[in-house]
């Protein structure tokens, strides 16, 4: 018998999936415009195709975020509440120990966390700010080359903002993929919370978000018990 906690709704997972695919495609198409050596490897027609595709995918990304927010204002409120919540002592300890933990997870114990870890909140805000900057600059450049014309300085500033946001985002997204996909061993199984059924077994939930897991297990609201005839197996002695 395994106890699971439902962490992400279908809408959250679908939104995340669409955003993830959009961001990957935007990164790939954007790289051909950002790196001249890559652009030189393909034809001019292909570059034009990528430029147009980059713009269309960017619009799809904006539409997905806006529509998802409008479809679930309650979910958006819950999301913002988590990211605006005040840090407690465990949050501060978590942030302090995060880098040592990443470099030596076997030797560093992490404190219990709420639904969104303090580190998640920092990365979330950075993603939000940089995401806003890259979308804003992208939209201005798009409009400035299609429906209207801005002066050269404005376009250059927007291009610089787009590039700086990209640099920060690429670092954050690589780290996000490393943790979220469960490549980092302590985060193994995390992928299922976004790309699977959205559930996490109680042991992993207690490890990653101890305060939240306890609250969920006490309320029983999002708890799913699966009678799979499975019991935790004792460790193989080395």
């Amino acid at each position: 018998m395994t106890v699971y906690i439902k962490r992400n709704t279908l809408q959250t997972r679908l939104t995340h999936g669409c955003v993830a695919i959009s961001v990957i495609l935007l990164t790939l198409s954007g790289l051909f415009m950002f790196v001249p050596a890559l652009a030189a490897m393909v034809s001019a027609d292909f570059i034009i195709f990528l430029r147009n595709a980059h713009r269309v995918i960017g619009l799809v990304l904006i539409a997905v975020i806006v529509l998802s927010s409008l479809a679930s204002p309650k979910g958006l409120g819950h999301f913002l509440k988590n990211y605006f919540s005040k840090w407690d002592d465990d949050d501060k300890v978590f942030a302090k120990r995060f880098v040592p933990y990443m470099l030596s997870p076997k030797n560093v114990d992490m404190p219990y966390q709420h639904e969104v870890k303090s580190g998640q909140r920092v990365v979330g805000w950075l993603l939000f700010i940089m995401g806003f900057c890259i979308i804003l600059s992208g939209v201005v450049m798009f409009l400035g080359t299609t429906v209207t014309a801005f002066d050269a300085s404005t376009m250059l500033i927007m291009r610089l903002l787009h590039d700086i946001s990209f640099i920060v985002l690429i670092v954050l997204l690589l780290a996000h993929i490393y943790l979220g996909a469960g490549v980092f061993q302590p985060y193994k199984g995390m992928r299922k919370t976004m790309f699977g059924d959205g559930m996490l077994n109680e042991s992993d939930a207690l490890y990653h978000w101890g305060h939240w897991a306890r609250e969920e297990l006490e309320s029983g609201k999002n708890v799913v018990v699966v009678d799979d005839g499975v019991e935790p197996k004792k460790a193989q002695e080395a």
């Binding site: 199984g189 077994n201 042991s203 005839g229 499975v230 019991e231 935790p232 197996k233 004792k234 460790a235």
Partner: peptide, 10 residues
């Protein structure tokens, strides 16, 4: 136990 997920054994 020292596994991230329950093992399929009874």
């Amino acid at each position: 136990a020292t596994v991230n997920e329950p093992q399929t054994t009874t």
